[in-house]
Simulated scan of single mutants.
Amino acid sequence: MNDKRKILIVDDVKTMLLLLKSCLAPDFHLQICQDPKAALSRLQQQTFDVIISDYLMPGMDGIDLLSQAKSCQPHCARVLLTSDRDLTTVQRAVKEGHISAFISKPWQNPRCSPVLQNWPS
């Protein structure tokens, strides 16, 4: 039996998905999605423990995605990933997205160091 927690990562930037995957893959069962609408479809088909979503994406922002995710998976932890430092964004994320955590980009993680060394400037 696989007891790893299931995480859905949603970001329209493929390199960010690969970076997050390389950081988290050893400890979690991961699925990645570049399109927030496709992520919602996946949330209706599978159960996840955590959803990590970027804030700025075409078609739907991460707060809207996490808000809708709460409706279909209310017990799932919701994490917003963003470089936006605007307090209004954070307040909206807490109120509408019911986020469990907020991760500011860029971040430091020793496990990601080999990937970050090759990260485009």
Rank of each mutant, 00 (worst) to 15 (best):
E96L: 09
K70D: 08
T88C: 02
E96P: 00
L65D: 02
P74D: 03
T82F: 09
S71A: 14
V79I: 13
Q91H: 14
S53T: 02
S67K: 14
R92A: 13
D54Y: 11
K70E: 09
D64Y: 03
T88F: 14
D61C: 03
A93L: 03
S53G: 02
S83Y: 10
Y55V: 00
S53Q: 04
S71W: 10
A69R: 06
V90M: 10
Q73Y: 09
Q68V: 02
S53F: 08
V90A: 14
Y55S: 00
T82I: 04
Q73D: 01
S67H: 09
C72Y: 13
S71L: 15
Q91S: 12
L80C: 02
Y55T: 01
K95R: 15
Q91M: 13
D64W: 08
D61E: 03
G59N: 04
G59D: 03
S83D: 07
S67T: 11
S71R: 14
T89L: 08
D54G: 04
E96Q: 14
C72T: 15
D61V: 07
V90T: 10
P58L: 10
V90S: 01
L56C: 04
P74N: 03
V94D: 01
G62T: 06
S53C: 04
R92S: 12
T82V: 03
G62I: 05
S71K: 15
A69V: 03
K95C: 02
R85T: 14
S83A: 15
Q68D: 04
A93H: 07
V94Q: 12
L87I: 15
D54I: 04
I63T: 04
R85E: 12
L81P: 00
D64G: 04
D61S: 03
L65E: 02
V79H: 05
V90N: 00
Q68G: 01
P58T: 10
L66K: 05
K70W: 13
K95G: 00
A93M: 07
R78G: 02
S83W: 11
D61W: 08
Q68E: 12
L80F: 09
Q68L: 13
S71D: 13
S83Q: 10
P74K: 06
K95N: 10
D64T: 15
D61I: 06
D84M: 08
T88P: 00
C72M: 13
Q73E: 06
E96I: 09
I63N: 01
C76N: 04
T88A: 13
C76R: 08
K95V: 08
V79Q: 06
D84T: 05
Q91P: 00
S83R: 12
D84A: 06
H75G: 03
T89R: 07
Q68M: 11
C76K: 07
S83H: 09
A93Y: 11
